[in-house]
């Protein structure tokens, strides 16, 4: 079975470490916050200028001046700080964020990522994604392995306009966890009940499969 969105978030959360400053993108990455292991403290960075994002507010706590990068109303946790966009991207570009999790349309064997535009169809803008992929050493991309029609999104070369080049090393899809190195995807784990053959069939880019590919456990 392919992973659910929640399982993907849960799997990514296993990469968190105590004391990490983490930037979570919109969508599945946002859900990672729900799976921070007990006893571990992480600080969430929101690129509009908040470090230490807390849960959504209760109805009575809603404050128009306190939002996250997805424009949702949020709260600040104890130990939080707020700052300008300039400061926020100094943290990001300067490599001070320990882990960045973001979505993508496509990735390729060179570590390129496309996530912000489908020419002629969808133009929403890159927001902070280009700065995030350029500034972070430690990035996990969460995405669907293939389109609904079965077309692979793990490619030899991205077909869409890039968000960043040679910057992605780890990808979690609904089918597999892969690492990118030496011009290939390296299969590290597979979703429960998903065969190596299915992953191979849905991976257009060069895929290296070791003798043993453990199943993820939930």
């Amino acid at each position: 079975m392919a992973l659910t969105r929640e399982q993907m978030a849960e799997r990514v959360a296993r990469e968190l470490r105590d004391g990490f400053y983490v930037n979570l993108g919109i969508g599945i990455p946002t859900l990672v916050a729900n799976y921070v292991p007990k006893g571990m403290e992480v600080m969430l960075q929101s690129e509009n200028g908040l470090l230490g994002m807390g849960p959504f507010p209760a109805d009575s706590e809603v404050d128009a001046d306190m939002i996250n990068a997805g424009k949702q109303t949020v709260t600040a946790r104890v130990g939080a700080s707020v700052f300008s966009s300039v400061e926020s991207f100094a943290m990001i570009r300067g490599g001070h964020v320990d882990l960045t999790v973001l979505g993508a349309f496509e990735v390729d064997v060179q570590g390129n990522i496309a996530s912000w535009m489908v020419p002629g169809k969808l133009v929403k803008g890159m927001g902070g994604a280009m700065d995030l992929v350029a500034g972070a050493e430690n990035i996990i991309v969460t995405m669907m392995h293939a389109s609904k029609d079965g077309e692979s999104k793990l490619l030899d070369r991205c077909s869409l306009p890039l968000t960043g080049c040679a910057c992605i090393k780890r990808v979690l899809t609904d089918l597999a966890y892969v690492e990118i190195a030496d011009g290939a995807f390296h299969l590290r784990e597979r979703a429960p009940g998903v065969s190596v053959d299915e992953i191979r069939a849905k991976t257009a880019g060069r895929l290296v499969v070791p003798a043993l590919v453990p199943e993820m456990k939930f």
Binding site: S85, F89, I92, V123, K124, M126, G127, G128, M130, D131
Partner: peptide, 22 residues
């Protein structure tokens, strides 16, 4: 915005957020 952008009525320079701030 998206309509004016795609139709070419509006000139747009999409700029990464951190680059824009800087």
């Amino acid at each position: 915005f998206e309509r004016q952008l795609l139709s070419g009525e509006l000139e747009v320079e999409l700029t990464p957020q951190g680059t824009l701030a800087e």
